[in-house]
Design a protein around this nucleic acid. Structure first.
Lengths: 271, 271
DNA sequence: CAGTGGTCTAGACCACTGG
DNA sequence: CAGTGGTCTAGACCACTGC
C-alpha cells in the first residue's frame, strides 16, 4: 500500500529518492511521519490557530486531517507534551500549555525556601521598581537577536517572600524585552497585573515563553542592588542570567536576577 | 481474549477487582502493563542481571519472556531510556547506561567555561587532597540515610581547568560516601584512576549513580577553602550541594562543591 | 451515555549495524 | 545477509470526564 499523507514529503518517497540518487545527500533528510506531524502542529501553535489554555482537536480529528493513523498523531503529541508545549488530560482533551492557570505560580523559578514546603510561604510580594524604554546595549542586543540601539524595554522588579511574618526582599530582577512585540507595555500594566509575568505576556502580547537557558554565577552586588536587597556590599549573591525563548527558538527576554540565598536555594535535578 | 502475562497482577484483573470491591481502595492501584514491565526490568538492573555497558535482551526476547507484545516492552524501555537508565542504539541493541565510555566526561557537571566550546578546554587536572574514614555527622547521616556516627568515607579533591596555558583551581569538592558499600576505597585507588569518579564507583563497587539533586547557594569560602582555590576570603563562590542516588532512590553520595565562577558558569535549561 | 486520551496487540515494513 | 531498534497502521478495549 502506498500511503500519501497530506504532507510536503512522503517519508517513504523521500527515503527511496535518497537511496536512488547517485550522490546521496550528506544529511539523508529522512524524517519520520510523526516528526512531520509534530512540525505541522507546531506551526499551528505558532500561528495561533489554538491559543494557550484552549483544547486542540482530538487525536482522531487530527489523524483525519493529516490523513494519518491515530498512533502517529499520538506520538507527535507525546513529544510536544514532553516539551511542555501541550498538556494532555485524560477524558478531556489535549490543551495548549499556558503560564496562567498553572498550579505552580512561577514555572521557571527554581528558587526554593531552605525549609518548609514548596513556594507556599504565601504569595510573593512583587514591586515594579522601574520600567522604561531604552536603546539596546551590545550585550542585550546580542542576547535578544537585535542590533545595538534597537528599542528595548527595561524592567526592574523585586520579589519579596514572607519569613517570620515579614516580607524579605529576595530576588532583584532586571529584564529586557524587545520593543516591537511588547509595544504598549507600561509600569502600570505590570504593577496592576495579578499572576505570573509570563501569563501577562501571553494574554496581552501573544508572546508565549516556551523554554529558557540560565547561566548562574556567584557575585557581589552593585551599590544600588545592595541597597534594594538590604544586604551588605560583600554579601555573596546568585546571579542568574536567563534568556527565554518563544516558538522557533526566538529569544524574547533577557533577565538578570540577583538571588539572596541566605534562606533559599536554587534547586536542580540531574539525570 | 483474556491475556495473562507472567506478572504479579494482571491489570485487567486488578481493575475489575477494584471496581467490584464494595470499598474501593483510595488508590485504585491500577498500573498499566508496560509500567509493570518497566518495574521488572528495573529489578533486573538493580540485581545486576545486566551490567553497565552491556546489552539487555532484544525487545522480541523480552516480549517473549514477559508474555507481552513487543510494543508493550517498547514503551517500558522508552521510559527507562528517557530516565537515562538505558541507551538505545538502532541496529545494535539496548544497553545499560554507564558513566564510563560516555563521550561527555562528567555527565552531572553543569559548569561551563564562559567562552569557548564544551568542556574542551582540555582534560581537567584532578587532585585528591584527602580521603579518610570518619563517623557521620548529623547532617551527613541524614542526607545519606544513615545514623549519626555510622562509618562514612570523606574525600576532598580539586578540579583545575586549563586557561591561557595554566591550570586554575576551579572546583573544590568535599564528598561523603557510606562506609559499607565503599569498603576498600582508598586515596591511591582514587588518584590512580583515569575517568569519571562515578565510573570507578560502577566498576569497582557496583554502585551506579542514577540521578541527583542539587541545591545551589552563593557563599564565601572558609579560610582553608580560600587557600586551596587561591582566592580571597570575600570572593563570592557557588556552593553546590549534591545528593546522588542509585536505583530505588537510595542516596549514595553527598557532595559539597565550591565553584569559582570567575570564568565559568553553571548552565541550566528550563522547559 | 458519548467523547476523550491511554493501553495493548499483531503484523508489516523501514533504517541501521555488523559479520 | 540476519538481527536490532524505529515507524506506521488498524482495531479492540479500558479509564476518565462531563453531560
Amino acid at each position: 500500500m502506498t500511503h500519501t499523507p497530506a504532507i510536503a514529503v512522503d517519508p517513504a518517497q523521500a527515503a527511496s529518492d535518497a537511496n536512488a540518487s547517485i550522490a546521496p545527500a550528506l544529511t539523508p533528510a529522512f524524517s519520520p511521519l510523526y516528526q512531520q506531524i509534530k512540525g505541522l502542529i507546531l506551526q499551528s501553535l505558532q500561528a495561533g490557530e489554538w491559543k494557550p489554555g484552549e483544547a486542540i482537536p482530538s487525536e482522531m480529528e487530527l489523524a483525519a486531517r493529516y490523513r494519518v493513523s491515530q498512533g502517529t498523531v499520538r506520538k507527535a503529541i507525546d513529544e510536544l507534551a514532553a516539551d511542555n508545549l501541550l498538556v494532555r488530560r485524560q477524558g478531556k482533551g489535549t490543551f495548549v500549555a499556558t503560564h496562567a492557570e498553572q498550579h505552580v505560580q512561577y514555572r521557571f523559578l527554581k528558587l526554593m525556601p531552605d525549609q518548609g514546603d514548596i513556594q507556599s510561604e504565601g504569595p510573593a510580594l512583587r514591586d515594579i521598581i522601574d520600567c522604561k524604554r531604552q536603546r539596546a546595549s551590545a550585550d542585550v542586543a546580542k542576547a535578544l537577536g537585535l542590533r545595538s540601539g534597537d528599542a528595548v524595554l527595561h524592567v526592574r522588579r523585586m520579589l519579596s517572600f514572607k519569613r517570620n511574618g515579614e516580607f524579605i526582599p529576595t530576588i532583584l530582577d532586571d529584564l529586557w524585552l524587545p520593543g516591537v512585540p511588547f509595544k504598549g507595555l507600561t509600569m502600570e500594566r505590570l504593577a496592576g497585573y495579578r499572576g505570573p509575568m509570563y501569563a501577562l505576556f501571553e494574554t496581552e502580547f501573544g508572546v508565549r515563553m516556551v523554554r529558557a537557558e540560565e547561566k548562574i554565577r556567584a557575585v557581589n552586588p552593585e551599590a544600588d542592588q545592595a541597597r534594594l536587597l538590604k544586604v551588605g556590599p560583600t554579601t555573596p549573591l546568585l546571579c542568574v542570567e536567563r534568556v527565554a525563548y518563544t516558538y522557533n527558538d526566538v529569544p524574547m527576554e533577557l533577565r538578570r536576577g540577583l538571588y539572596n540565598t541566605e534562606s533559599h536555594h536554587y534547586r536542580n535535578e540531574l539525570s
